[in-house]
Amino acid sequence: MLLNVLGSSGAFPTSESPCSGYLVEHEGFRILLDAGYATFPALLRHTAAESIDAVLITHGHPDHCADLNPLLRARALGGNDPARLPLYSPPRALDAVLALDRPGMLDDAYDKHEFTPGESFVIGPFAVDTRLLPHWLPNAGFRLTAGGTTLVYTGDTGPSPHLIELARDADILIAEATWPEHVPAEAAEVLSSAAQAGATAASANVGQLILTHLHPGVGATESVAAARRAYSGPIAVATER
């Protein structure tokens, strides 16, 4: 399994980083995992728009799905006539981004597959498990397994035992860590800190922790240090590559 980080900035993109987006590939099958602001240009540095085989979206906030619009425009208007792109998301998560264009303009560019978080399914060579994780909007955490490797991605989430269950013994956990130590009180149930991500990684016995969705201005060194107090395995901050 090959993972490329397209972006990881929380809330809004910066000059250094797009928002959340990950390109996951196995046996030539390419999944786009979230498509936040500014991830489409980053995607094009790795592959063509028509080469994406499926898209998984955790939830409907634009820092996780806004660049689905240029991706679909490129496939619909680029002249290569690719197959319809399967889009997987919780119910109604994509309604707003799919309504950005005139009615019917992109209808032939995608097939929408809505699922209830908690369901499991297969996409190409990937077995996909999902869990409902706490956020302001319904958010699906994803567990992708292919070729003996397991990758777990939280989307945006507050603390939850379902997250530990989802991440159990995963090779890689990509965990939302908006703040290093303490999440503001108004968001404490729906967002996480790097310290909490480290505790989750330790409890779930994951092989590697990747911190993502850091709020712009939050330092990587501070976040890694916060996660390190609970988790002794490899820790990195998601950066575009």
Rank of each mutant, 00 (worst) to 15 (best):
L144P: 12
E186T: 05
L166I: 02
A187Q: 06
A177R: 04
T178A: 15
P161S: 10
V183F: 01
P184C: 01
A146S: 15
A185Q: 09
R168Q: 07
P161A: 09
I172R: 10
V183I: 11
E165M: 08
A140C: 13
A177P: 00
R143C: 12
P159L: 14
A170K: 03
A146T: 15
A194M: 01
H162E: 14
T150L: 10
A167C: 03
H182V: 15
I174A: 06
D156G: 04
E189V: 09
L191M: 13
T150F: 11
E189I: 00
Q196F: 04
V183C: 03
E189H: 12
A188T: 09
E189Y: 03
S160I: 06
D156K: 06
Y153C: 11
L173Q: 01
G141T: 14
V152C: 14
T154D: 09
I164T: 13
P180F: 10
P161L: 03
D169T: 04
I174P: 02
L191Y: 03
G158A: 08
I174W: 01
Q196S: 09
A177F: 00
L144H: 13
L191H: 06
T150H: 08
A195W: 00
A187I: 01
E181W: 06
H182Q: 14
T150M: 11
L151P: 11
A188K: 09
E181C: 08
E165T: 10
I172F: 07
A195V: 07
T178N: 06
